[in-house]
Computed example of a mutant assay.
Amino acid sequence: MHIEVLPLSQPRQPQQDESKLVFGKSFTNRMFTLRFDRGQGWHTPRIEPYGPFSLDPAALVLHYAQEIFEGLKAFRRSDGSIALFRPRDNFARFNRSAERMCMPQLDIDFCMTALRQLLELEKEWVPHSHGTSLYIRPTMIATEPVLGVKPADQYLFYIILSPVAAYYKGGVNPVRIWVSDDYVRVAPGGTGEAKTGGNYASSLYASALAAQKGYDQVLWLDGVQRKYIEEVGSMNICFVYDGKVVTSPLTGSILDGITRRSVLALVRDMGYAVEERALSIDEVLDGAENGRLQEAFGTGTAAVVSPVGELTYRDRTVRLGQGQAGKLTMELYDRLTGIQYGRLPDLHNWIELL
C-alpha cells in the first residue's frame, strides 16, 4: 500500500527546554492512520496532521472496549542517529493482542515501513538530552457504529509520538510497593497477556488506594489463590533469590514484556540462573527478612529497570537494600540503556537504526 502524506498547515516546534517534558503530555505534528473494513481489509494508509478523530457515539470501542495498544521508544544517540529497540517484537505482540481481542492483524513489515516513514518526518522531535526519548504508541480501536456485543467490522489503527523526559531525573531511586489482596488485575483465561485498555482500567482503583497510602505501585497476586506474585501495575517484576533471578511464568495472565525478555537474556549472559516459577508473597517477605532475597526490580518500557526498596502486604513491611538500588539492578539498567543509546554493543541484534 502506498502511504499518502498529507500537508501540515500550522507545524509546531518541539519543546526547546527538554527538562520540562512530561510523559504523555505533548505530541508531534503528525500521526499515522490506517483503516479496516471487513471484506475490504486494511486501506487508506496516511501520515496526517496530529488531531482529534471523528468517532460515532455508537462506536463499539466506547461500549465494549475492543481496543489494544503498544508502547516502545526511539532513542537519540550521541552521533545524532536514531535507534529503535526491538520494534518488531512490539508489533508481533500487538498482533497477539489483536488475536485475543478478535481484531484484525497487521503486516509487521508494513508497520515498520509506516513507522520509519513517520519517524523520518518527525525526527526533529526525538529529544537530545540524556535519558530522554520519543515514546511511540501504536493503537487499534473498533469504530463500527453499532450497539451489540460482537467483534467489530470496522477498525482504526494509528501511531502517535510523544517526546518524553528521562524517567529518573534525580538518579535511580527504589520504589515503594503495596501488595493488593482485596483486588486482582485479571484471572486465568482472561485478557491478562493482551495489552488492552480494560486491564489497565481495572487496576485504577487499587492503584489509587496505594497512592493514598503513599506507595508508588501496586503488586498484583494471582486471581485464584491470591498468593502468587504476578506483576506490578506498569511492569513485570523480578527477584534475586538465592543468587538466582526468579520471575513469574507466562501462563496467560501477565504481559509478555519486551523489557522482561531482554533483561532475562542479559542476566543469562552474565552467568545467572533464571527461574520462571510461581513465587508466593510469603516466600518473598520471608526471603527479605532472612536474607535469601537480595534484590527486586521491575522491568518495563518507561522505567527500563526500576529497583524495589520496600514491599507492604497487609500489616507486614519489608525493606530491601537499605534504600539503595541493588548491584545487579543497576548493572542491568546500565547495560540495557547502554545498548539502547549506543554506548554498549548490541550483541543480540535488538537495535534497528532509522
Rank of each mutant, 00 (worst) to 15 (best):
S9G: 02
T299V: 07
I229M: 04
E310K: 08
F91D: 10
E352S: 05
E193H: 10
I47S: 06
M101F: 05
P163A: 02
F110S: 03
K25M: 11
V218L: 02
G170P: 00
Q66I: 07
Y215H: 11
K227R: 15
L250K: 01
G148I: 02
V246P: 12
T196M: 10
M1W: 08
F110K: 12
P138T: 04
S180Q: 07
Y168L: 01
R261E: 15
S129K: 14
Q15F: 04
S133K: 00
M1A: 08
P57V: 06
Y155P: 05
I254F: 12
G214L: 05
L55C: 12
I254C: 04
E275S: 04
A273H: 10
K244V: 11
R30K: 12
I160E: 14
M330H: 06
L121E: 11
F27D: 08
S78T: 15
F94D: 04
E352T: 13
M235G: 10
E120M: 07
Q117Y: 09
L72C: 05
Y215A: 09
G233Y: 03
D153E: 15
F239D: 04
Q217W: 10
F53Q: 14
E122W: 03
E99F: 04
S9L: 15
S162N: 00
S19T: 14
P87F: 10
A273I: 15
L119H: 08
I237R: 07
E310Y: 00
M140N: 12
K20E: 13
D89R: 11
L134K: 02
S97N: 12
V274I: 01
A201M: 09
D216C: 04
T299F: 04
A142E: 08
L147S: 01
R30T: 09
L320C: 07
G243P: 03
L320T: 02
A152C: 02
A201E: 01
N236F: 00
L156E: 06
D222E: 05
F157P: 00
G321H: 08
L344E: 14
R76T: 03
Q322R: 08
F75M: 01
E230H: 04
S202V: 13
S133H: 00
F36C: 06
K195R: 10
Y183D: 07
V308L: 11
T259W: 01
E99P: 07
Q322L: 14
F85P: 07
E283F: 09
V274E: 07
P49M: 08
W220S: 07
I258E: 09
V179L: 04
D181W: 05
T251A: 14
P7S: 06
L147H: 03
I136N: 01
N236R: 00
K123S: 13
L219T: 02
E230W: 08
L62C: 11
I177R: 01
F157G: 05
A59N: 10
R185D: 02
M1V: 09
L21T: 06
L121A: 14
C238E: 06
Y228T: 14
G342V: 08
T317E: 00
L60Q: 15
R86I: 11
A211M: 11
L336Y: 10
P57Y: 09
A74G: 03
R176N: 13
S19G: 11
L336H: 06
T337G: 09
Q217S: 13
A206C: 10
A152N: 02
G189S: 05
E295M: 09
Y50L: 11
